[in-house]
C-alpha cells in the first residue's frame, strides 16, 4: 500500500442537488491515491482517509462553487449527508475513516427547499 502510485477504486455518488456541482454526474468511478499527502515522502504518508478524499475530490472532480461542498476544517459543508458503504459515516469514524478498495461513498445534500 505504501507504493506511491497505488490507487483505490472508489465509487462516488452525489444526490440531493450535489450532482449539480459535479457537472450533473450522479456517479463517478474514481481512482483515488491510496496514500496521502501526495507530495510527502514515502514514510510520511498515511493511508487515505475520507478527509483526504474530500480535498482530493474538491480539487480533482468538483466543477464549481467549492464553498457549497467543502466546509471549515476540511470536512464537507454542514448539511451534507455522507454514507460509507450504505452506513452513516458518523458510525465509521467520520473524517478519519480509512478508505478501502471498492468503497462506495455517497454524498447527499440536505440543503434543499420545499
Amino acid at each position: 500500500m505504501s507504493q506511491s502510485d497505488a490507487t483505490l477504486r472508489i465509487e462516488l455518488q452525489f444526490s440531493g442537488g450535489m450532482e449539480l456541482l459535479f457537472d450533473n454526474q450522479k456517479t463517478i468511478h474514481a481512482k483515488v491515491p491510496a496514500s496521502f499527502p501526495l507530495d510527502g515522502s514515502a514514510e510520511n504518508r498515511h493511508a487515505a482517509t475520507i478527509r483526504d478524499l474530500i480535498s482530493w475530490t474538491a480539487s480533482n472532480l468538483l466543477k464549481e462553487r467549492p464553498e457549497l461542498f467543502i466546509g471549515a476544517d476540511g470536512s464537507v459543508r454542514s448539511g451534507i449527508l455522507v454514507l460509507v458503504n450504505g452506513a452513516d459515516w458518523e458510525l465509521e469514524g467520520e473524517l478519519e475513516y480509512e478508505l478501502e478498495d471498492r468503497d462506495e461513498i455517497v454524498f447527499i445534500s440536505t440543503l434543499h427547499g420545499g
Binding site: E64, L111, H112, G113
Partner: peptide, 10 residues
C-alpha cells in the same frame, strides 16, 4: 432539477 434554490445562486 427541482432545486430552484440552488440554481438561483448558481
Amino acid at each position: 432539477r427541482h432545486h430552484a434554490q440552488l440554481d438561483w445562486t448558481m
